[in-house]
Design a protein around this nucleic acid. Structure first.
Length: 259
DNA sequence: GCGACAG
DNA sequence: ATCTTGTCGC
């Protein structure tokens, strides 16, 4: 198992990281409507951490946007590249997430991130950051309102209300299931807010969180378990090499896995 | 000045 | 994010 290296020149301090955000945010594209919901690919990305071993595992899971069937998936394991600081999440997750995306055998289409895009103190959350680095269309779907405010949406699925930074709408609080706490949707890159909301609803036929996020969450946790096990018992003799794993924990699921 | 704060 | 038992419900 290879461990993703932190890129050369990656910010080491909060000041440097904020400067990078201020420099890159001008490259965010906000005037494209984005992919049509229900067509092409939709890819979920997520990460899981092992603080003790300083590891982060990332997963990218590609779904068919029409059927929500898994089309492909990939994982990557890296060193944690930045401490957790609210507003600087991207610097902690992006190198490993990008590695997982690079390992996909097909184009990701729209990328759905676990967190924020424009809804960010400097309007450059991890979904926007990932979008600028890859030029892929991205959105952010977060579980918490962060520092933003909102009025409670109507209780039925589809109910939504502006997510506000003062008087500025930076996203939407969107009810994805009847009577459950809303999720917080914001634009990342090359997608409009209406499209981001429509995609989120298309991805939540059964649960509060998008299928993309749920699949990526399950896969990155599995990859982390595998990585911690390998680091604990595997390399005790240096570079013990075993027979190639059936799939290395990544790749396309078995043929005919569709229901 | 102090607290809150995506994951 | 992550630590964690039982518990309620489909």
């Amino acid at each position: 198992m290879t461990i993703v290296a932190v890129p050369a020149g990656w910010p080491a301090t909060e000041e440097e990281a904020r400067a990078v955000q201020d420099e890159l945010r001008g490259r965010v594209v906000l005037d494209e409507p984005g992919p049509r919901p229900g067509s092409g690919h939709v890819t979920g990305v997520d990460v899981a951490y092992d603080d003790g071993l300083d590891l982060v595992a990332a997963a990218a899971v590609v779904l068919d946007a029409a059927t929500l069937d898994v089309v492909a998936q990939a994982t990557a394991v890296g060193r944690v590249s930045f401490p957790y600081v609210p507003g600087l999440l991207a610097f902690r997750e992006l190198p490993t997430v990008r590695a997982a995306l690079d390992r996909l055998p097909c184009p990701p289409g729209l990328v759905v991130c676990d967190g924020y895009g424009l809804a960010h103190p400097r309007r450059f959350g991890l979904a926007s950051h990932l979008g600028v680095l890859t030029d892929l269309p991205t959105i952010g779907v977060a579980k918490n309102p962060f520092t933003f405010t909102y009025d409670d949406p109507e209780p039925a699925r589809g109910g939504c209300a502006p997510l506000l930074a003062g008087a500025e709408e930076v996203g939407r609080a969107l009810r994805t299931r009847d009577g459950v706490k809303p999720v917080f949707v914001s634009v990342g890159h090359r997608v409009g807010l209406a499209g981001a909301v429509a995609h989120t609803l298309a991805l939540t036929p059964r649960f509060r969180l998008p299928e993309t996020t749920r699949r990526a969450d399950a896969l990155c946790r599995q990859a982390l378990r595998q990585a911690t096990a390998a680091l604990a018992g595997g390399p005790a003799q240096g570079s013990t090499r075993r027979a190639p794993a059936p799939d290395g924990g990544a790749g396309v699921p078995a043929h005919g896995s569709a229901s």
